[in-house]
Design a protein around this nucleic acid. Structure first.
Length: 271
DNA sequence: AAGTGAAGCAACCGCGGCGTT
DNA sequence: CAACGCCGCGGTTGCTTCACT
């Protein structure tokens, strides 16, 4: 599979990788490590750009990278994480050892997203699709559960964003703002749960006692913090999140055998 | 058996963040 | 503090394979 190979004007090779190239890259990295991607291709004897080498290594050649089909548990986990974190594939990948962000992203875009849509669940909001929500975004008056309702207010008038005529821009707006805002909204709900609030706030208190926080966990400041969470913080959150029961909006089941999360997608996975 | 569309996978592109100068 | 360059990330594209008609 993959793309046909071709050469740029400067002699850089593009497209699909050969076994020989893979071998060269693996041999070099095993010996010298990744280091500076700029010079790595030249040193490894490859006519590739550093970016291409990096991608190939991270998504395919890196030790421990898991190939093949996603298990139902993994799919469940992806849906779970996506509902909370949005399209932050790198963060999601960190929670799923062996899977690359590219792999997860591909699987979401090519399979899981469509599966949710077939089941009439909005893959952005993870809420059941209603005709009202789909066709009348500007009429949505609920408290931000729909992606549309989160896009419009923060971006000015809906017409201003759609009038640019760029599907790519609209996608960006939708995924960047709505999914993250959706995540923030959900996080706020979760954080308002006393169990979570007490657990996390205690840890925050001890971890960062030097800092003069004193902020409410559900405040706007906390939203901004959430958007910048590092791996450790996300991991901690996911740990808490996965231990919790949700009866809030019917999206989550009260229990799950999954090691990853609690999203009830049984009927979807059987699809 | 041939045609066609969907699904899956690999890789490229462009942008934003961050470190360095 | 602005300019620059590199890296990482997310979106998108292109190719192959598979399933169905």
């Amino acid at each position: 599979m993959g793309r046909a190979t071709w050469f740029e004007a400067d002699g850089t090779k593009r497209g699909g990788w050969t076994e020989e190239e893979d071998q060269k890259l693996v041999t070099y990295i095993n010996k010298y490590g990744t280091g500076d991607w700029r010079f790595l291709p030249h040193k490894a004897g490859l006519q590739r750009c550093g970016k291409s080498c990096r991608l190939r290594w991270l998504n395919y050649l890196r030790p421990g990278v898991k190939k093949g089909k996603f298990s139902p548990q993994e799919e469940e986990a992806i849906i779970n994480f996506q509902s909370i974190l949005g399209n932050r594939w790198a963060v999601i990948a960190q929670q799923m050892p062996g899977r690359s962000d590219n792999d997860i992203k591909n699987h979401w875009n090519s399979c899981l997203k469509k599966r949710l849509e077939r089941s009439r669940i909005n893959p952005m909001s993870h809420q059941p699709i209603s005709n009202l929500a789909v066709y009348t975004p500007s009429l949505n008056t609920d408290c931000g559960n729909s992606s549309y309702s989160t896009v419009s207010p923060s971006m000015g008038s809906p017409s201003s964003s759609s009038s640019c005529g760029s599907a790519s821009l609209l996608n960006k707006i939708a995924t960047g703002i709505s999914s993250r805002q959706q995540g923030v909204d959900r996080i706020k709900n979760i954080m308002s749960d006393s169990r979570f609030t007490s657990n996390i706030s205690q840890e925050e208190e001890s971890d960062e006692s030097k800092k003069d926080h004193g902020k409410d966990l559900a405040s706007d400041d906390q939203e901004d913090d959430f958007l910048m969470w590092d791996e450790e913080k996300v991991r901690r959150f996911m740990k808490e999140f996965c231990q919790m029961d949700f009866e809030t909006n019917g999206v989550y089941s009260s229990s799950s055998s999954s090691p990853y999360g609690v999203y009830d997608e049984t009927n979807l996975l059987d699809d």
